[in-house]
Write a protein that binds this DNA or RNA. Structure first.
Lengths: 317, 317
DNA sequence: TTGAAAGCGTTACCAG
DNA sequence: CTGGTAACGCTTTCAA
């Protein structure tokens, strides 16, 4: 049976004090309360099972100590990891995170932003947003995508990719293919070019596809025609697709073709062979994002966080 | 520059009407508004960039058309998939989902439940909760875990596991090991026993471990000593750990040891070899859960949804 | 068809 | 140290 909600009035009445005093006790301020009065109030709260109504509080205060997080796809392990890290980071600073996913649809993304704003969130984290949001009055930060109008935090895509490819080069590879997402993500591609150029190698074969396992799978089958001896994938998901395509083709990894990818989500440690990856600094990204939100730091300059090269079997190490 | 929030009053003033009329326009009810007045109001809303304040609305209405979803771990692909499905299902019915993760900690779980309740959610979905929650006045439903006090929806664990193991038996396996989570999840184990008994086989080796890749990895190394010819894992994560351990040991799959697992998350299609799985009916679970929440269906009886056997390479098919 | 006003649960100011 | 009370933005009844 749905119990009637217990309000502050009930508590005040039960404890024989005014609602103001209850408020002081609940919030431990802004006025001091006599110890015994305080005890009576706490007792009343316990007995009645009182829970403060956060919406009323939000209405009164105009703020909620809540952040909204929107990812393009909750099923993507990288985004899931990011969301989790943001949640944890925010929690340590007394904020609650409301997470939702836009399913890769800009329209849904806009709608969800609206929902979150209507709920008076104190800040918004957009993970790899598809477009510049129009938001006023609330701090916003983008992760993994630089935008025109909002502050952003991102991994060192270009340099990270370069280091990954350089490592492949150091294993003696001379034909290094690239599997990369569609338009709008030039950095990892540039890093790949940087490494090849620096080594005096000709440009390798390149396939543009979606950031998905299927995309990687299809891309690898195309790439095989160009007989690369190594492949760099711009995301883990794609690398996992590549892995399957290579296995199916009877290609040995890393003996026949070496493989490395960008992201470094946990599952790459358990593929066969385990993947050498350029690890996204998930925790640091989350920390910086939350930090900026709380500080109201709204410089539009993008903050770049360094990546980490994790060597495992797939590169030949 | 944080713009001052635009309120209903501003809109009313700008349009030269009362706040009531603005309300009628925004909510398309409960009173009709003359077409031209309506136009003026809409115009004002556009010009001023007015956004209704959902917290005020919630305070007034006592409801939010919002569901809270708590998973034990957003990084677990199964839970991520479930959360996504719930989000989608709720969206089609005009609800918004606020998702958060408890990190496997009962304490955090309780706290998050409190946060969500304080925000006046209209319902709560607990994915694989660790304990019976104490919630009054708001409908709650558990997914994938039956509890004492709340309604729940779950896959046909026992029957699904039985069918998975039966399939392994049909490939001629006679020593079928089981990798399963710790205490409190007896069903899949029972299904495994059912299948072995029905086939007149002796009990196979069993290892209890955590529901994680690491757990599966360790378990497989233990299991190897018992020389099974097939292994059934109670979750995908564990199966993926098993896969790695077997590969490292130079065991061929499925020739030397066949493998199947429970869950059927998307990544199992891209492991090597692709995993034969008992697929959890994620969409159906989500649909039923949301359905029950909306209907206020609070029968404590657990609803069981059938699973689907998906045959891929790892079993020998 | 529209306006005025009460009240949702909370906070914090002003008196006492 | 505590009580009374106005106000937050919204919905909806009652009157006009």
């Amino acid at each position: 049976m749905p119990k009637e909600p217990v309000t502050r009035n009930d508590v005040a009445e039960y404890a024989g004090v005014s609602t103001a005093v209850v408020s002081y006790v609940v919030n431990e301020g802004p006025r001091k309360v006599a110890p015994d009065t305080r005890e009576r109030v706490l007792e009343a709260i316990r007995v009645l099972g009182y829970r403060p109504n956060a919406t009323a509080r939000a209405l009164r205060m105009g703020t909620t100590r809540t952040f909204g997080v929107i990812t393009p796809d909750g099923g993507n392990p990288l985004f899931a990891e990011l969301a989790k890290a943001i949640d944890k980071e925010a929690a340590t600073r007394g904020y609650v995170v409301l997470q939702t996913s836009a399913d890769g649809d800009p329209e849904i993304e806009r709608a969800k932003i609206g929902e979150l704003l209507a709920r008076q969130v104190s800040g918004l984290v957009l993970v790899a947003p598809s477009a510049d949001p129009s938001v006023e009055g609330v701090p916003v930060i983008a992760i993994n995508r630089s935008l025109e109008a909002v502050s952003s935090v991102r991994p060192a895509y270009r340099e990270g990719a370069r280091r990954g490819v350089e490592h492949l080069v150091s294993h003696g590879h001379r034909v290094i293919g690239l599997v990369i997402g569609g338009a709008g993500h030039p950095e990892r591609e540039l890093g790949w070019r940087d490494a090849l150029e620096a080594a005096g190698l000709p440009e390798g074969p390149i396939v543009r596809t979606s950031f998905s396992r299927e995309g990687g799978y299809d891309a690898a089958r195309t790439l095989l025609a160009a007989s690369p001896t190594a492949i760099f994938a711009s995301s883990d998901l794609q690398a996992i697709g590549v892995l399957r395509a290579l296995h199916e083709a009877g290609v040995r990894i890393p003996e026949d073709i070496a493989l490395a990818s960008f992201d470094g989500t946990p599952e790459t440690e358990y593929t066969w062979p385990p993947l050498t990856v350029v690890r996204q600094p998930v925790e640091a990204l989350a920390r910086e994002a939350v930090q900026r939100l709380i500080d109201g730091e709204q410089s539009v300059e993008a903050l770049t966080v360094p990546t980490e090269l994790v060597l495992r079997k797939s590169c030949g190490c």
